[in-house]
Simulated scan of single mutants.
Amino acid sequence: MSARGTTGRAAGTAQEAGDSDGLEHLARVGLLAFGLVHLLVAWLALQLAWGGGAGESADQSGAMRTLAESPLGKPLLWVVAVGLIALAVWQAAEVLRWRHGWSASGKTRTKALRKSGNALVKAAVYVALAVLAIRFATGAGTSSSQQQQETTSGVFSWPGGQWLVAAAGLVLVGVGAWHIRKGLNKHFLKQIDTSDASPGAVKLVTRLGQIGFPGKGIALAVVGGLLVYAAITFDPSKARGLDGALHTILELPFGRILLTLVAIGIAAFGAFCFVRARYPERT
């Protein structure tokens, strides 16, 4: 069988997987899970801002630990993990779905590469969160900030590791800026099909996106800034992840107010994911 035929069959399989009703329903569960994680992070950030979160990390690991300690928490964590894995598979199918455009020219190729790159990044994020959920479900969860510091320390030992950490930080700053821009110009509306939505629903999605994307973007940009600072100082303890980023915001002038606003933004992004689960992806 020719390589082209094999590739065509793989792309067809991916198309079938992406169009599977079962996978679509699981992906919607994943979006709900993704939104729930953001809502929990926002709640932990508010507790941090107003003095009630001294013992819990205000990040994804803190959110997973909060779920694990709740009634029926561990079974719920398995549901979260399965949903996030389904989202990752959904995004992997997107990569193959756009593969035909890689060899095209002009805007078609640019769009295909952009869509594929975005899908790969999203898939990686969903897999990482799914692994985190599984670890907490099995009692082996650890702090995300601690893991990031250990990873950064390991990368520093590589040739050019300091530059790699700085580059990763700059990428995160850029992703944060992209989220902020996406919220301000309402570009997120171009990615979902709301043609069947009522005017009230469209207004709700728009408002949540306008608040949620900038809120998440600010948090990501600060995380990236801390990575760059860790690279400049050659100190992995400065790479403190999302929890460290929120603590950094709290230490600024009017930190409580700023952190509260960021928490509201993260909560709005979580609510956006809940509403987003209702609408299909625009191709």
Rank of each mutant, 00 (worst) to 15 (best):
Gly161Arg: 12
Gly161His: 11
Gly161Ser: 13
Gln162Lys: 15
Gln162Asp: 13
Trp163Val: 14
Trp163Thr: 14
Trp163Asp: 11
Leu164Val: 14
Leu164Lys: 10
Leu164Ala: 15
Leu164Ser: 12
Val165Arg: 13
Val165Pro: 13
Ala167Ser: 11
Ala167Gly: 11
Ala167Met: 11
Ala168Glu: 07
Gly169Met: 04
Gly169Asp: 04
Gly169Tyr: 01
Leu170Val: 07
Leu170Trp: 00
Leu170Tyr: 02
Val171Asp: 06
Val171Pro: 10
Val171Asn: 04
Leu172His: 02
Leu172Lys: 02
Leu172Asn: 03
Leu172Glu: 02
Val173Met: 12
Val175Ala: 07
Val175Cys: 09
Gly176Arg: 00
Gly176His: 01
Gly176Gln: 00
Ala177Glu: 03
Ala177Val: 12
Ala177Arg: 06
Trp178His: 14
Trp178Tyr: 15
Trp178Gly: 11
His179Pro: 00
His179Phe: 01
His179Gln: 03
Arg181Gly: 08
Lys182Ala: 09
Lys182Trp: 01
Lys182Leu: 07
Gly183Ala: 12
Gly183Ser: 13
Leu184Tyr: 04
Asn185Val: 15
Asn185Ala: 10
Asn185Leu: 11
Lys186His: 03
His187Arg: 15
His187Asn: 11
Phe188Met: 08
Phe188Asp: 09
Phe188Thr: 15
Phe188Lys: 09
Leu189Thr: 13
Leu189Ser: 09
Gln191Gly: 03
Gln191Glu: 06
Asp193Ala: 00
Asp193Gly: 05
Thr194Glu: 07
Thr194Trp: 01
Thr194Gln: 08
Ser195Leu: 03
Ser195Pro: 06
